[in-house]
Simulated assay, not measured.
Amino acid sequence: MYAIVTLQDSDEVMVVASNWLSLDKKQCCWPPFKSPDKCMEAVQNRIKAETGGKPWEKLNISFHRECVTFEKAKEGQKEIKEQKERSYLLATGFSGILKRQRLESTQGMSNNQLQPLPAVTPASTYRMSADDKDELLQMLRDIKSTVQENSAMLKKLLKDNTVSEAPSSTSVPSKDIKANLKLPLRTFEDVARTERELNTATTRKKYVKYLSGLGGFGPKDVIKNIMQQVITDDLAKEFNWQGRGDKRPFSHLILTDVIRDAAFKRSVNRVECETEIKKYLSYTADRLGRKRPREQGGPGHEIPIVISTSLMDNQPEMETSRNFFDE
């Protein structure tokens, strides 16, 4: 016996061996073969639903009917496909759209004729010709094929992707992992300790895995998420990219290489990564200027004047920040 089913994930009508169905006929074992010919052979021979003693994956299905022979099942598959396609045409009104396109084409070819074109019949009452039907069915098959390919590709990407895609506003790192890595860094002693730890490949991999899992959309968001977890603003203000002035060079740290590797796993290349780190470090004083008045003065404290004065009095800091992007 053979069964005609619709795979719920792809909405594809298929013929399968009846012995592959679950008792309630809501699931079906599916062969792991990549070759369509091998899958077809497995269906025709109704082989046992396992490979090397390992059961096949079960897929959710909608059961239609069973047939005694494979040929009858293929005929039933074709009928059900055409029924679904006709239902889709009626639901979307594609027949009326195609008729309208043909009338417009006729109008363009008949510029010398002055008589008006006949009114377009509404989709709900228009009776399709054989040519219309064939053309629309082919269009739907092409669309369906594309959707199925995209679905398969998306499923593979989701299966292969082990990194969280949560945006920065909802990205919540594991507290256990964070505590184990002793982040964020708060003192120069913390930096020196971390640099020693990162000399081992195992520890470096742990940092890369943790930092790449912080999420973010685009280079700015990714680097912001990483830097916020890596270093406090109080310590970050002691660094700039090249170590100019009285600052320490962030680019010389092993930790910076780790950040590059983590960012690369989020599709952020080296140039984008370094640019965003420079920006993040250069804006540290501004972040502290906004944060500290709120902490000291409470909700009713007026902060705009304090920020403006501190920035005007700190011209060397601003000048250094601007120089980062000339390096």
Rank of each mutant, 00 (worst) to 15 (best):
G243S: 03
K278H: 07
P299L: 15
L183V: 05
K224W: 00
D257L: 02
K26C: 08
S151D: 04
Q101K: 14
F70E: 01
K78M: 13
L157I: 13
P116A: 10
P116Q: 11
S35Q: 09
K38L: 13
T320F: 04
L103M: 14
F239A: 08
C28K: 05
S169V: 01
M153Q: 03
G298I: 03
L23F: 03
I177H: 11
R248Q: 09
K99Q: 13
L59Q: 06
R196L: 12
I47E: 05
K38A: 14
D286N: 06
W20H: 03
Y210S: 12
Q228C: 09
G76L: 11
Q296Y: 14
E317H: 11
I223N: 15
N111A: 04
K74E: 13
S124K: 12
K206T: 01
D257P: 00
P55W: 05
E66V: 13
K74Y: 10
T6L: 10
N240C: 00
Q101V: 08
P122R: 09
W20K: 07
F250Q: 15
E57Q: 07
D176S: 09
Q83R: 14
L23E: 02
S129E: 13
I223G: 15
S105R: 10
I143M: 12
P31N: 15
V172T: 05
L157E: 04
R244S: 10
S171M: 09
S110I: 02
D142T: 09
C28T: 09
V5Q: 10
D176I: 05
F264N: 01
A262N: 04
R244H: 08
Q228N: 11
F188Q: 06
P32D: 07
E274A: 07
M227H: 06
E66Y: 03
A49M: 00
F324R: 01
Q44A: 14
T275H: 06
M139Q: 10
V120M: 04
V306A: 15
G76M: 08
T125C: 14
K178P: 00
K205S: 12
P293N: 08
D142P: 00
E272H: 04
D134T: 09
A236G: 04
Y207N: 06
P116V: 00
S310K: 10
L158S: 12
S110K: 12
N240G: 06
W241T: 06
D326S: 07
E71G: 10
V163N: 06
R102L: 15
D286F: 12
P173I: 01
V271F: 06
Q242V: 13
G245S: 09
T51I: 02
A73Q: 11
F70D: 01
E85I: 13
V15H: 07
A152H: 10
T170C: 12
V43H: 14
P118Y: 10
F324Y: 09
K38H: 06
V13G: 15
D326T: 05
F325D: 02
N225E: 11
V172I: 11
W30Q: 08
S168T: 08
Q315K: 13
A3Q: 00
L281M: 04
N199H: 05
I97M: 11
N45D: 01
R65F: 09
